[in-house]
């Protein structure tokens, strides 16, 4: 029983939590890829920006991290619209790799701006021991993990409704499917692109806040997520939001479970190499199923 308890508390729950965070980041990455056809290398740093915006809310107004989410989402949306306007839009007619290079530069610029304002020390939303509650009389779950899990599920559900029920969501899927036909149909691609930035940026903000809440806030935190969230997006097939949700969970779980002592005694893989797991899964995918778990070609 102790063994099972440890498994749930030390591996399963952390895996689900980081899986939800990866999923939120990966959805944005994959939506942007679908609509703009380039990999947004600054997406991790957009997460960082969200985390710091929330930190400002927590610090200045004493907000609960959840209450700081709207602030962070609005801020990163503006940030994304700004970088799209000033840096990406002017390059839209050039090969997509130019955009990729530009986004790498934007990643460093966001990071530098944050370091300039906040310095390089790690910061915390909340200090001290966190409240936890008992579930089913055996497991203890920290409050923030419940918040993170429930909010992630709610946001994904909201995204699902947006994509399938609203005109904007259908237009986003249409542009992702065929930008040329979307234009012929009268869909304004510029509008769709803007909304995609708002949605992708907001989800990244939430991911960043959750990441900071579950650990600490640091200027490098987002760039370090680029690998796992890209891996999650590729796993699910670039351009497929539902794939990214699954991909995020798989990567999060795999990272945590890789250090479980499956063979008794020692950890299967030293926790220091956790990040390597995402990479290994991604490389394996790229070799055997470059179009993602759920097939079909990326266009």
């Amino acid at each position: 029983m102790d063994q099972a308890l440890m498994f749930v508390n030390a591996y399963l729950i952390p895996g689900l939590v980081s899986g939800s965070i990866y999923a939120l980041g990966a959805i944005g990455l994959t939506l942007l890829f679908g609509v703009l056809r380039f990999t947004h290398f600054a997406h991790g740093d957009v997460m960082t920006a969200g985390a710091y915006l929330a930190l400002a809310g927590v610090g200045l107004f004493g907000l609960h991290p959840i209450m700081a989410l709207p602030l962070a989402m609005a801020g990163t949306s503006l940030l994304c619209l700004g970088i799209n306007h000033f840096f990406y839009a002017p390059l839209m007619k050039r090969p997509s790799l130019v955009l990729t290079i530009s986004s790498f530069g934007v990643a460093l610029m966001i990071r530098a701006a944050i370091q300039l304002i906040y310095g390089v020390e790690s910061q915390y939303y909340v200090r001290g021991i966190q409240k936890s509650r008992e579930v089913f009389g055996t497991f203890r779950i920290v409050d923030r993990h419940i918040w993170i899990g429930c909010s992630a599920v709610a946001l994904m559900l909201a995204l699902h409704l947006l994509l399938t029920r609203t005109r904007l969501g259908k237009a986003m899927r249409a542009v992702s499917d065929s930008p040329d036909l979307a234009r012929l149909t009268g869909i304004s691609t510029t509008t769709v692109i803007r909304y995609t930035w708002v949605i992708g940026g907001s989800l990244a903000a939430v991911a960043g806040v959750f990441l900071g809440w579950d650990g600490y806030v640091h200027a490098n935190m987002g760039w370090d997520q680029l690998l796992p969230i890209s891996a999650a997006a590729i796993l699910g097939g670039l351009g497929r939001p539902y794939g990214a949700m699954v991909g995020g969970l798989v990567i999060g779980m795999a990272e945590e479970l890789s250090s479980y002592p499956w063979l008794g005694g020692d950890a299967l893989l030293s926790p220091g190499y956790k990040t390597g797991v995402a990479f290994a899964i991604m490389v394996a995918m790229l070799i055997w199923r470059p179009n993602g778990l759920f097939g079909e070609k990326v266009r």
Partner: peptide, 11 residues
């Protein structure tokens, strides 16, 4: 190309 870029970040 961008997959290769991600892979090199991983390496």
């Amino acid at each position: 190309a961008d997959y290769l870029a991600i892979a090199t970040i991983g390496i």
